[in-house]
Design a protein around this nucleic acid. Structure first.
Lengths: 183, 183
DNA sequence: TGCTAAACGGAACATTGCTCCGTATCGTTA
DNA sequence: TAACGATACGGAGCAATGTTCCGTTTAGCA
């Protein structure tokens, strides 16, 4: 046995509580709130998730995996640029619904979070980008890393007056036509 | 007289100190640091600048004004889309060099900051956008508000591997060609 | 049932934002 | 120039939050 039963139970309770509190108060909700919602003490949360980044990663791991796995599927079903657009939409949908997640990424304190997301998704994005480039559907030499970060940034603070998804689509348009001022 | 001499002196000292500390530690530097650098007490900083947003606005007011005033000048000197591109570059340069400024904007606590920037710059951007649309150089109905926010977001966390300016240029490209999948 | 190691809980400390009030200083007026 | 009132100052103190530490509890095993 690698973990005691109560430890396993508490870890799951923390994941559930964090998911709930993140929706209610954003991913920067007070640690005490999460612990209280899970019905555990302060020590327990830090024992299971020493940093906030680790907790966030654990909470969203499934969704990130799902997004990553969708990439090849989309690429098989559609022309590369369409697939890229659809996949980026998927990623944007994920971020837009997580208030404050994208905003947190910029902070140096959350490097592990940043790294997990990018390590998992950049390769997928690269394959989509490469396919589109090979098909001659996009120009320019933008890296998948930059595209992911750009899309991530655009998704910050989406609301009534700022439709992040629209900006993301515009950015992808730019990929297909990178020279604005020349005919 | 509207303000005592020591008050005037301290206000200027605070502006100088804030500018210095913002460069050293970002715009979210501890209030105590700024007060200490200025050589004043906690009370004084809050008396002159009740909220952080007001302090930040005061520190950067000149630069925002300069950017706003550059708009019409650029529009007079170049074709609309070129002028728009140059002006956006100016704006991006301003943000990229202010570590954390763009990141702060998203927070609800800094609404006044957000509002000041947008109230001052959106009209300028609108005139550039309208001119470009009138000249048939761009399509789509993106608002200046959305464009400014998009550019602001893209400028978060620029570093070695993420060239925010490049993403901004790409976004502007998208403005000129909003339909990626059609020839 | 009793033992040990794992896990727990929450008090305590550090940091930071912000307020409040006794004190000091400025500018004016006699 | 001396005294006075209004203005401004300083920093202690409170509240919120992150993080650590250790005495206590409990699960699993013999």
């Amino acid at each position: 046995m690698t973990q005691r039963a109560d430890a396993r139970r508490n870890q799951q309770a923390l994941l559930d509580a964090a998911a709930e509190v993140f929706v209610r108060s954003g991913v920067d909700a007070p640690v005490r709130d999460i612990a209280a919602t899970a019905g555990v003490g302060m020590g327990t949360i830090y024992r299971h998730f020493p940093t906030r980044a680790e907790l966030i990663i654990a909470v969203y791991r499934h969704q990130v995996e799902a997004c990553a796995e969708a990439g090849p599927r989309l690429l098989a079903a559609d022309p590369p640029l369409v697939a890229l657009g659809r996949w980026i939409d998927l990623f944007a949908d994920f971020l837009v619904t997580k208030h404050g997640l994208a905003g947190l990424m910029q902070s140096d304190d959350f490097r592990p979070l940043h790294e997990y997301f990018l390590d998992r998704l950049v390769p997928v994005c690269t394959s989509l980008l490469d396919a589109a480039a090979a098909a001659g559907e996009i120009q320019g030499d933008l890296t998948a890393y930059e595209l992911m970060r750009g899309v991530g940034n655009l998704c910050i603070g989406s609301d009534d007056r700022y439709d992040a998804r629209r900006l993301v689509r515009l950015l992808v348009s730019g990929l297909a036509a990178p020279r604005p001022a020349s005919p």
